[in-house]
Design a protein around this nucleic acid. Structure first.
Length: 242
DNA sequence: AAGATGTCCAACCGCCATTGG
DNA sequence: TCCAATGGCGGTTGGACATCT
């Protein structure tokens, strides 16, 4: 059988940047008929591209579900956290950032975050995923905290308690913290003791993706039950952050 | 003003896993 | 069971544009 001619050995196949009329053909075809086979799509759509090229163009550019705005600070924090957890598994990271593609995240990381890290001499130029973190259950979460102040809360009891952990405030280091969520219904993280910049998470009902992408702080936190265990977590977190 | 250099990102390459005949 | 086709992924490249000298 003939190999997929999507390579530089096929001089007839069009390459390079996509032209507007090509985009239009591809967009119109997919929105009208959908995709059953990328390999046969170019011919059906009247395009002189290979299937892989069409797939890439759709996935990375034409798909109407893609976000067009620049990556936000919150998204950047999430990318850093997920990269720490998963390494260069960009597709896996992209699953937690709706509307963002693996290519976009990869480019963003390689251009901006890596450069920032080099400027601040914090993280190595390349690093491997934290295998331990990557193996953790759905009840675990890794978050990036820049100049962090962290609050742990639990709604399940009476009594009010709030604990705070502060990292080296003068440092620009991106720190990581891992939490076991099975025992706490909420963790809130703030960079500036500012409600607007808090992350609020309802661990009881949220999926991991929802947790990872939830960026708004919507409720006041009230109670903590297991203070002793909480303090252990905070001590552990302090070590990680400092 | 113009060439050099740097940055960003779209697109390609090649490998690997899966699928199906 | 084998093997070609296909899809998906991460690494890399090259060109457009911005900034610097």
């Amino acid at each position: 059988m003939e190999r997929d001619p999507c390579n530089n050995k096929n001089p007839k196949r069009k390459r390079g940047l996509w032209l507007p009329h090509e985009d239009e053909k591809l967009y119109n075809f997919i929105t009208r008929f959908g995709v059953t086979s990328w390999s046969s799509l170019p011919k059906q759509a009247g395009l002189e591209r290979c299937g892989k090229s069409c797939r890439l163009r759709w996935m990375n550019y034409l798909n109407p579900e893609l976000k067009r705005e620049p990556i936000s600070q919150e998204e950047e924090d999430l990318i850093i956290a997920l990269h720490k957890k998963f390494g260069n598994r960009w597709a896996r990271i992209a699953e937690s950032l709706p509307g963002r593609t693996d290519n976009e995240i990869k480019n963003y990381y390689n251009c901006r975050i890596k450069r920032k890290n080099l400027e601040h001499n914090t993280t190595p130029n390349t690093y491997k995923p934290d295998e331990k973190l990557a193996e953790e259950s759905d009840y675990s979460l890794t978050m990036a905290v820049t100049q962090p102040t962290c609050y742990f809360f639990n709604f399940q009891s009476t009594g009010v308690k709030e604990e705070k952990v502060e990292a080296n405030s003068g440092s620009n280091m991106n720190s990581m913290a891992t939490y076991d969520m099975t025992n706490y219904s909420d963790i809130r993280i703030s960079n500036e003791n500012n409600e607007k910049n808090c992350n609020y998470i309802d661990f009881q009902s949220a999926t991991e993706n929802e947790i990872l992408t939830r960026l708004d702080c919507k409720e006041k936190i009230e109670e903590v039950q297991d203070v002793k265990r909480l303090e252990e977590y905070i001590n552990c977190l302090s070590t990680l952050l400092c």
